[in-house]
Design a protein around this nucleic acid. Structure first.
Length: 828
RNA sequence: GCCUGGGUGGCGGAAUUGGUAGACGCCAGGGAUUUAAAAUCCCUUGUAUCUUAGAUACGUGCGGGUUCGAUUCCCGCCCUGGGCACCA
């Protein structure tokens, strides 16, 4: 018997697929398309088990869909810009470009060793000028339409890394790399106007329902944070000034007894100028301004404030409302001013209690017996009271009526507020795509003319040891001639956030080698959207929101026909070792290469798919992978040992003639397993149960092979069953299946094979087991003919000797017969 | 607080529309083969109790409910992973 030499077999078939170009994709419109995509990796140097799991799931989907007759598009590339390359450059004195391209080469080899069916001719790397030139083109388009703009904004600044950090790179106020305290700095930055798309990004989540996990949709909804309410204007007494507030509760306007402003509110200075409160307020504002943002926004921070000495007027009842500056009011949400309704908002309630401010109840509970708590604001809906002409109205209904009244007087309007902020894409880093902008003393901000694209990132620079970008010091890069007036000018030295590259890469694959267009409308119309996107939950908001935004913008600019990039999303769970995520710093990593060397790619793939359903976390288990390996060896020995009697019959072959019971049973099992595997893959990619079914079939084959080898139809049925196993297992463990397929005598590679079609007739049995219960408890089984009538089954059940024991001398109240399943005898 | 997942043997996990709870795999125990080991093959394996070739009771986080019958449906809780949050 030939030994299962997985190393030789895997190399052989990988070479074969490669040289035959089995996985190249072409535009074939008569076939239905299927675009399956896994989130592309950052080229860190080596793949980890999380990648293996992600890409194994994707590869099964790709191979399965090909077998189902789809024209499958399955590309791979590299998210190649980013800080780790610069860190490596500093640590190992190697240029980020060299480091990145070497890593890509290593990781490509690793991925090829796992036998993934990628179309490698579509490979992209985002750090290549031929990639980012189109990104620069998009930026210019966005700039033209006002979607990209520059503004001064507060950012997270790490003084030791000399760079801004994204919010997610700040951990409890400290820099994730060097643990320095992050400062706040006002910097002029480039922003993309994602807030223009807030409503559409939110509304279109509905269209993704079903295709995307509910929790990802919920996370995006939270992130966008829509609140519906009104903007209301309060005029300041004895002064020509208005304070505008955003409120979700215009129905409580009659209960507004004071006003709270953020310390940074632009009106504060004007309000206090020359007043007796000036000194006190200024001291308070300065004290708050010095506080770290995390301390400031901590929920347990004591609420405090200071009176400005000024009053504003309630637009509904003319009430004098003292104006406070309060530490809990945030300048970057709403208008930076809050109308305080102590009776109906807990925060305002506490604040009013502390400073002895009046509380006026304007909403009465609908339940007249409800007793209001002395210490708690009543925040629910109810009936209006103390609200003049609105008394007695339902508070929900009153919202619109009051807003209407304000609008008629020019004092307010219905409005919607979002939590979502515009996307700051400027990075003071070297290893990124240059922003194609020139600053001219005469002309101001001047976009780089399209003919001058790409603005190439200069490679003949050295990364500064302290991490500062070398670009501002790179004269050949910075010093340019203004394209508009011809005078000397300066180039923008910030680069783009790497999330910009990953916001459109899925479309670039469609025309990866096209140097004139990012992609063509024909390609996009045929292939987009991605039918199945697969990746980690950690991208639930950032990457997945940015990509959705980009797709909508590219649609509006005429590049794409679709407004959503990913029709279906699978978020796979993490790979854990000893209960926590594998990480180099914790030292709990399992190296995929070592596993492939020890067990082979097929085993590693099989284990990743079998150990748990894809969306759940997977606990790595050395014994578990032994089990996976055992199964493939068992399959190998089965085919090798039967080799002499096997023939190259098609999966689920029709059989002429009468089958013995054992023969019919094997045939039934074969067809049933094909049915179950197909169902499990179609239904939420349940590869774990699909594999379990195939294991059952192998177990059955072991049990019956000796008997069936000698029976008339036995060899044909064994061959058919094994052909089926090899075809349906091939998306998961492709190499061993190809090899055994050839061993069986099949002349054509499995990549040309279609998914077997099971015969529903083959699933039928002559005899079925019916369960008998007494009062819902299992008491016996009987075997009856499959077509036995309910009466016959009931009759047999009641005469079963196990059942007689339980029902003797008792009253039979009723008998329930579920055809083909069970009989329940109810007795008293 | 709001929004979302989840809770089933020693472990990972199964269970189409309510119909045999624990498929498949791992671990463990026993046996076969072997000079021996590895590998392989076969058997046992939810818990408890008993008069132990078998039988009975209990058992899917907890407490109720609907039903002939509930892991599955309904009501009320507990625990837990994740997201958002002084959000006005």
């Amino acid at each position: 018997m030939k030994h299962y030499d997985f190393k030789a077999i895997e190399e052989k078939w990988q070479r074969f697929w490669d040289s035959e170009g089995c996985f190249r994709s072409a535009l074939v419109t008569e076939k239905k398309k299927y675009y399956v995509l896994e989130m592309f990796p950052y080229p860190s140097g080596r793949i980890h088990m999380g990648h293996v799991r992600n890409y194994s799931i994707g590869d099964v989907v790709a191979r399965y869909k090909r077998m189902q007759g789809f024209n499958v598009f399955h590309p791979m590339g590299w998210d190649a810009f980013g800080m780790p390359a610069e860190n490596a450059a500093i640590q190992h004195k190697i240029h980020p470009a060299k480091w990145t391209y070497e890593n890509i080469a290593n990781m490509r080899t690793q991925l090829k060793r796992l036998g993934y069916s990628y179309d490698w001719e579509r490979e992209i790397a985002t750090c290549h000028p031929k990639y980012y030139r189109f990104e620069q083109k998009f930026f210019l388009d966005f700039f033209k339409t006002g979607l990209a703009y520059r503004k001064k904004a507060p950012v997270n600044w790490c003084p030791s890394c000399h760079t801004v950090l994204a919010n997610e790179q700040v951990e409890e106020g400290l820099c994730w790399r060097c643990d320095s305290e992050v400062q706040h700095k006002e910097l002029s930055q480039w922003f993309l106007r994602i807030t223009d798309y807030a409503e559409e990004l939110l509304a279109d989540l509905e269209t993704l329902s079903g295709g995307w996990p509910e929790r990802v949709l919920a996370m995006q909804r939270n992130w966008i944070g829509k609140s519906t309410g009104a903007e209301v204007s309060f005029s300041v007494q004895d002064m020509d000034a208005q304070i505008s507030v955003f409120t979700t509760r215009p129905d409580t306007l009659f209960g507004a007894t004071f006003m709270s402003l953020a310390p940074e509110h632009p009106l504060v200075e004007k309000l206090i100028a020359g007043s007796s409160q000036e000194k006190e307020v200024r001291a308070f504002v300065e004290r708050i301004a010095k506080m770290e943002r995390i301390v400031r926004t901590a929920e347990d921070l004591e609420k405090e404030g200071v009176f400005t000495g000024r009053y504003c007027l309630n637009p509904m009842n003319g009430r004098q409302m003292p104006i406070y500056v309060a530490n809990f009011v945030l300048m970057d949400y709403g208008t930076g001013a809050v109308m305080a309704v102590p009776a109906h908002d807990q925060r305002d309630f506490d604040f009013a209690t502390k400073y002895g401010l009046p509380k006026v109840q304007v909403i009465a509970p609908k339940d007249p017996d409800m007793v209001l708590d002395e210490q708690t604001a009543y925040v629910d809906a109810g009936f209006m009271v103390n609200s003049g002409e609105y008394d007695g109205l339902d508070s929900e209904a009153a919202k619109a009526v009051i807003v209407q009244s304000l609008a008629e007087r020019g004092l307010g309007k219905a409005t919607i507020n979002y939590r979502l902020r515009d996307w700051n894409i400027s990075r003071q880093r070297y290893w990124g795509a240059p922003i194609p902008i020139i600053y001219c003393d005469h002309c101001g901000i001047v976009p780089v003319p399209e003919k001058d694209l790409p603005v190439e990132l200069p490679l003949d620079v050295q990364v500064n040891p302290d991490g500062r970008s070398p670009l501002p010091d790179c004269k050949t890069f910075v010093e340019v001639i203004c394209p508009s007036c011809g005078q000397p000018a300066r180039r923008e030295t910030d680069t783009m956030d790497t999330f910009v590259e990953s916001s459109w890469y899925f479309a670039r694959y469609l025309a990866a080698r096209n140097e004139d267009h990012p992609f063509t409308p024909e390609d996009a119309a045929y292939w987009m959207p991605v039918d199945q996107y697969i990746g980690g939950i950690e991208h639930a908001i950032l990457h997945l929101l940015y990509s959705r935004f980009f797709t909508k913008v590219l649609r509006d600019q005429g590049y794409l026909a679709h407004g959503e990039p990913f029709a279906n999303l699978l978020t796979q769970g993490m790979v854990l070792l000893h209960g926590s995520k594998m990480s180099k710093s914790k030292g709990n990593v399992v190296d995929p290469d070592a596993m492939v060397a020890k067990y082979g790619a097929d085993t590693v793939r099989l284990f990743c798919l079998f150990a748990s359903p894809p969306e759940k976390d997977l606990e790595w288990n050395d014994q578990g992978i032994e089990g996976a390996s055992r199964f493939l060896h068992r399959l190998w020995r089965l085919v090798e040992s039967l080799k002499e009697s096997l023939t190259a019959v098609a999966p689920c072959s029709p059989i002429a003639g009468v089958l013995s019971d054992a023969e019919a049973e094997l045939r039934r099992k074969e067809h049933d397993v094909v049915r179950r595997v197909e169902r499990d893959i179609e239904n939420k990619f349940q590869f774990n149960t699909a594999i379990a079914s195939m294991m059952e079939l192998i177990n059955t084959l072991y049990a019956v092979k000796d008997e069936l080898q000698k029976s008339p139809h036995g060899p044909t049925l064994l061959s058919s069953a094994l052909s089926s196993v090899l075809v349906i297992l091939s998306p998961i463990a492709p190499h061993i299946c190809e090899e055994l397929w050839a061993t069986m005598g099949h002349s054509q590679s499995l990549v040309h094979e279609l998914w077997p079609v099971y015969d529903p007739e083959a699933l039928k049995t002559n005899e079925i087991t019916v369960v008998i219960q007494v009062n819902g408890k299992l008491r016996s089984h009987i075997s009856v003919a499959a077509d036995a009538s309910s009466e016959t089954v009931q009759d047999l059940a009641l005469r079963d000797k196990n059942i007689v024991r339980y029902i003797e001398g008792k009253n039979i109240v009723k008998v329930i017969v579920v055809p083909g399943k069970l009989v329940n005898v109810v007795v008293k």
